[in-house]
């Protein structure tokens, strides 16, 4: 800041306060909780309150702290590696997230592309239309699909009426239902970043390509697609990361055969009351997502600094 030196000294106190308040909040309620998860993932499950051991005991002085560190172990992580249930759960989460994100890209791109080509006035209306479902509750929108996908729901009624099937197929409690739910819920997260990039695309580049005799599909492949890559990256990250840890959609629409990782954490915690195992599963999930999360942060910071 150019005029920083001119400001009176109480201004710098004010500045410190502006940073300190949200900084302190995030350290106490975001960073520290995560460190606690890390610590508990190295503890043992115990029948006590809280249900894990060792507990850091400052009252016992150095001996307490020494005992605490001696009590830590990697047993929970060994369990993660050896029990196929956990491994399956991670594989299933990654698989669903990867395919769902691909489907979202395939469905979202034509929508965003179409939106960007409509007249300005229509664009504003379309953006509101795409954003509006995002504001209505996530849970409600999944519940709405339960209505449609149930055995004698609207989808089966329509299929039977059109004589496409003769026996009502089962939709709920299948992976198909999970994919429908994921694509439906995350579509705005894919369409909006793509639209933001496509809308700013310099049309004269496409005109130049056309003037030089480039066919339209080739111009799309060589000009539009590469130029929209920031939107693709943003959309893919915004969908992929939360889908891996998704709980509500697989829980309500999916079957019980192979749970996704979010469900595993939930049942370890609420069902089995095994807090250390739940923490270990959570830490492993973060490790799995660390690359995409860092990529996302990097991109978010770059966009915000570009101004």
């Amino acid at each position: 800041m150019i005029d920083a030196k001119r400001r009176p000294s109480n201004a710098s106190l004010g500045r410190k306060l502006v940073v300190a308040l949200p900084y302190a909040w995030l350290i106490v309620f975001f960073l520290v909780p995560f460190l606690i998860v890390l610590k508990i993932s190295l503890s043992q499950s115990a029948i006590a309150l809280p249900p894990y051991a060792p507990v850091l005991d400052f009252a016992a002085g150095w001996r307490g702290i020494a005992r605490f560190f001696a009590g830590l172990s990697f047993d929970n992580y060994r369990l993660l590696g050896s029990d196929p249930l956990y491994l399956l759960s991670y594989v299933k989460s990654l698989e669903i997230a990867a395919f769902a994100t691909l489907m979202l890209l395939a469905i979202g791109y034509p929508i965003a592309y179409g939106m960007a080509r409509t007249p300005r006035r229509v664009q504003a209306v379309l953006v509101v239309l795409v954003v509006l479902p995002f504001w209505t509750s996530f849970l409600i929108r999944i519940y709405a699909w339960m209505n449609i996908l149930q055995r004698d729901g609207l989808l089966n009624k329509a299929l039977l009426a059109l004589h496409i099937v003769h026996e009502p197929p089962v939709w709920l409690a299948t992976d198909t239902a999970i994919y429908i739910g994921m694509v439906y819920s995350y579509l705005p997260f894919m369409v909006l970043p793509l639209y933001a990039v496509l809308e700013k695309l310099d049309q004269s580049l496409l005109e130049a390509a056309a003037d030089l005799g480039c066919p339209r599909w080739k111009a799309f492949w060589l000009v539009t697609l590469p130029l929209s890559s920031p939107g693709i990256v943003a959309g893919v990250l915004l969908c992929f990361i939360p889908i891996v840890g998704e709980f509500v959609i697989p829980d309500l629409l999916g079957g019980s055969s192979a749970p996704m990782i979010g469900q595993t954490i939930w049942t370890e915690f609420f069902g089995n009351k095994d807090w250390p195992a739940a923490s270990a599963v959570a830490v492993a999930l973060v490790c799995l997502l660390v690359t995409p999360i860092v990529l996302f942060q990097h991109q978010a910071m770059r966009t915000s600094e570009k101004g």
Binding site: L26, V37, F247, G262, W275, S279, A282, I293, A300
Partner: peptide, 27 residues
Amino acid sequence: LFASMIYAPLVMPEVITGLSLLLLFVA
């Protein structure tokens, strides 16, 4: 660190945010 803590919760799975805050409150 500040910017990281701002952007990380945007994509952090809710299950982890919930679990970690609960463990803080218990601690």
